[in-house]
Design a protein around this nucleic acid. Structure first.
Length: 478
DNA sequence: GCATGATCATGC
DNA sequence: GCATGATCATGC
């Protein structure tokens, strides 16, 4: 049995009351409070999410859409958010956390601290539940709850993100907003593409509807926190996961995260990888394929063995890639990303919740090395590239439409079970459409399983075409 | 020359 | 044992 009452003025009490939901469905939890209730009543005739059902039937108040938090006296906003399970039964974040709709014309009038987003989202009671396709909301199981405060350094970064978004609207570019513009807080798309166009204040171009959201990567760190803490009292007011940071809070108040990292990299401008490795006493051989990535990650942090563990990289989901440009200006190799998880295509309900969408709307940090043909005895036959530029990038909205077609093509092949080399209609490099699908494994004997037939099929990955990367680099140097 | 399939060294 | 961040090695 959970606690049967709570104090609407006290965040801790509201949080403690949420524990009565865990490992039960809403129907079960409500039945405990009120055995007489007909659980079929726990439903909405029209639209409305699980969060509103919890508010109405478990906490016992009528949901509102006011700019104040759900529990105004305690300053607590109640959020429910879905999890999914992987093949090993681990809980994973299913989607970003949508916090507050953006009204382009109104939002430009508010500073960060005055904004409805800030007032609502500073202190959130986040309740995680397991999503099951087709199951009624009232029957879904609650897994974890956490009282999450946006504080300290996260708040510095989120405030900067907010200002990036507002400034883009002020420049009349609301229609060009992208989740990849920012680090933790993102302007995510909301609603269907065609019927959701909205006015913006400084341009006559109508823009797709967007909402402030916390990125899936950021949510993943909240989930990790909850999993690793005492589940009876998970709140981040006292503990934090800030042991492995790239940049400290004080520096971020004076300079943006991206500028700080760029400065760090450009100290090594015109250095080759051997020089950088020697400077840091790293053992790197020329046959190691990830040697450029390793020296770059070493420059960014001298404390971390595993760069991907860095706090800001995890929370923002930043993708760091190195690029080598030949002396003729061309890029020889295409760029690979992770292996395609074919199972996802049968489960995902919305392309906006797909892994590929998350990848392409990530913030990218490209570190470019250019070929230097100055003769050198140390290099002999090995081509020498020197560190040249740093570029933060995200995919422009017009290319995202192509990325969606690419994703749909992969989906069609998964559903029709044409994943063998001889059968598939995957995009190839020769199609010249920005992206292609290509093998990626330790060797050809490493296979994965078709989710449709269970057959062994080759492991493939998402790839950017080398020519597409040339257009990215080309635009930045103009 | 370059598209495509195949693979490498590392680290956890 | 496998993901990662890539490049290598064919063959047309």
């Amino acid at each position: 049995m959970g606690i049967t009452q709570y104090d609407t003025k006290d965040a801790t009490s509201i949080f403690a009351y949420s524990k009565g939901l865990l490992h039960k469905s809403l129907a079960e939890a409500v039945k405990e409070i009120n055995p007489l209730i007909d659980v079929n009543e726990i439903d909405f005739k029209g639209k409305g999410g699980l969060g509103q059902l919890v508010e109405k039937f478990y906490y016992g108040y009528e949901p509102n859409s006011s700019p104040l938090p759900d529990f105004p006296e305690a300053g607590v906003e109640l959020k429910t958010t879905p999890l999914k399970k992987d093949a090993k039964e681990n809980y994973l974040i299913k989607e970003r956390l949508v916090c507050d709709m953006i009204d382009f014309c109104e939002i430009v009038k508010y500073s960060f601290e005055e904004s409805p987003f800030y007032k609502k989202s500073l202190l959130m009671l986040i309740i995680f539940y397991l999503h099951v396709k087709g199951k009624p909301l009232r029957d879904l199981e609650f897994i974890y709850s956490v009282l999450w405060v946006l504080k300290d350094k996260d708040l510095v970064i989120i405030k900067h993100d907010y200002e990036v978004i507002i400034n883009k609207i002020k420049q009349g570019k609301a229609h060009e907003l992208s989740e990849g513009d920012t680090m933790y807080l993102a302007a995510c798309r909301k609603g269907q593409k065609d019927d959701s166009l909205r006015e913006q204040p400084f341009s006559s171009v109508k823009a797709p509807r967007r909402a402030f959201s916390l990125k899936p990567a950021y949510m993943r760190t909240i989930l990790d926190f909850v999993k690793n803490s005492n589940s009876d009292m998970a709140t981040n007011t006292d503990v934090d996961i800030r042991c492995l940071e790239l940049v400290n809070k004080e520096d971020l108040k004076n300079e943006s995260f991206e500028n700080i990292l760029t400065d760090r990299i450009l100290k090594f401008k015109n250095w080759d990888y051997k020089q950088i490795a020697r400077y840091f006493n790293m053992q790197i051989t020329s046959q190691e394929k990830s040697k450029y990535a390793r020296v770059v990650k070493r420059i960014l942090s001298d404390k971390l063995n595993n760069f991907e563990d860095a706090e800001e990289i995890r929370k923002a989901g930043i993708i760091v890639k190195t690029i080598r440009v030949k002396s003729n200006g061309h890029i020889k190799e295409s760029m690979s990303f992770e292996n395609i998880n074919y199972n996802e295509f049968l489960e995902v309900d919305d392309w906006l919740n797909s892994r590929w969408y998350e990848i392409i709307t990530s913030r990218f940090m490209f570190v470019v090395f250019k070929e230097d043909e100055t003769p050198s005895s140390e290099w002999k036959d090995e081509k020498r590239f020197v560190l040249d530029t740093v570029l933060f990038w995200t995919m422009p909205e017009k290319d995202i439409q192509t990325a969606e077609q690419y994703w749909n093509n992969i989906k069609e092949n998964v559903i029709s079970d044409t994943l063998e080399d001889s059968d598939n209609t995957f995009w190839t490099l020769a199609d010249n459409k920005f992206f292609h699908v290509r093998p990626k494994a330790q060797n050809m004997f490493q296979k994965c399983l078709s989710p449709v037939s269970g057959k062994s099929v080759p492991k493939k990955a998402y790839w950017f075409n080398n020519k597409y990367i040339e257009t990215i680099i080309g635009k930045s140097s103009n």
